[in-house]
Design a protein around this nucleic acid. Structure first.
Lengths: 228, 228
DNA sequence: ACAAAAGTGTTGCGTCTACACCCATGG
DNA sequence: CCATGGGTGTAGACGCAACACTTTTGT
């Protein structure tokens, strides 16, 4: 069925789009390649080991760059256009991870000059097809925000409804109605009121936490989760 | 970042879940491996060539087995569990294709004893993790049926509303209300009435065709496309 | 007392669901 | 004329969008 020459294997890598929300903006973690060409900002990633599961490879990248584990991680898509890497063919399995920025300590690798959160709306030029991968990841994230409770990965354990709403607004890039948002979210049963209150200069907000920190599809009622 | 030994590349293959609807049932195309172990029913697939795009590789498999081209084809997910293939590590990029069974002429490959449509609800034991791949593909298909017009790939150019409904019912595995189905589908503007009529023993049905044979997300109104 | 953020209900509109009978044709 | 599948409308329930003021706290 296939020609013999075709059986020569290609290197396989994983690249991880790590998102977080900082100050009302969606940010992505990028590393500046400083040692090997092509230089410039890239997604963190690495080759998949011989005996390594694909998810493991992505988890390892995530742990090496951010120090976090046990966060939301999802396989997105596999990019394999033969010329996507100018140095030779590499097939890349893209992952998306969602983290609470407060939990992250950025750790520079030895091949990299820098590692930084950059706002998705104002990205510099990126190496390879990484811009395309991020665009795809963002679309998927928007979808997931509307139909699932993935948002829990972007927030600390205790949070106010306003903080929750701000995360949605940052990612959907539109304002939501406060009363409708609260009614809708509370009716899902995904979050529980706690006895804690926020502290600060103004009226303290009731803090909530998630009933279950695992991915749930919102089927109540069915239909788009958030309209306006 | 990665250990040297990890750079040894693994073979990469594509496996294609080819669906069609035959007689009110969703079917999948399987080949019976007759030459090389492990013997038994498998998804059609092949290794990705050195200079071959991933989509191309899937298209090639599809063409070799069914003779069709220009049908709906979508990358699904990449399976890479190190022991998924007992002969050694193979990373497999799964695709889903949708075809109109009438357009297909099954073509036996030289490594295969047989090639056959089998109903998804009563599959025999499959080799590797192919059962899992089909289960995943089916979930994705159900989703796409509800939110997009992918159904056009499963039907001939001209079709009646009843035929259209039967395809939905086969895949969603539930009955739909005839009046609601018609109203809903017609209101999307995705199909056009034609002057043709079906022939047969009873009252002739008006035949329709698709306004555009490209994938459209149904955003009218937003929300689940088909309830009951 | 004032600034700032938290919190709270109602109404109108549109979409979805459930449901039963007549129509056109071939045999 | 009968069997078979094609084709049609309405009413009630429910979810969604729009909208503005009061409360609580720290300073």
């Amino acid at each position: 069925m296939r020609r013999e020459e075709d059986f020569i294997p290609s290197p396989v890598a994983t690249d991880v789009v790590i998102f977080t929300v900082i100050g009302n903006e969606l940010n992505v973690l990028l590393v500046k390649r400083g040692k090997f060409a092509p230089l410039g900002w890239s997604l963190p990633g690495g080759f998949v080991g011989q005996r390594e599961d694909l998810d493991e490879s992505a988890v390892k990248t995530l742990r090496e760059k951010t120090g976090v584990r046990n966060v939301y991680l999802e396989q997105l898509y596999t990019f394999g256009e033969p010329k996507r890497d100018p140095r030779g063919r590499v097939i890349s399995i893209a992952y998306m991870a969602l983290v609470d920025a407060q939990m992250v300590k950025l750790e520079k690798g030895k091949d990299t000059e820098g590692i930084k959160w950059l706002p998705v709306k104002k990205l510099p030029q990126l190496t390879f097809d990484h811009r395309q991968i991020i665009d795809y990841a963002k679309k998927r994230l928007i979808w997931k925000m509307e139909y699932t409770n993935v948002v829990f990965s972007l927030l600390p354990t205790y949070f106010s409804l306003t903080e929750l709403q701000k995360v949605y607004e940052a990612i959907l890039e539109r304002d939501l109605d406060k009363r409708n948002f609260r009614r809708k979210f509370l009716s899902t049963g995904l979050i529980k009121e706690t006895k804690k209150k926020s502290q600060g200069a103004h009226r303290p907000a009731t803090l909530y936490n998630f009933a279950e920190k695992r991915l749930e599809y919102i089927t109540n009622p069915f239909g788009q989760f958030l309209k306006k």
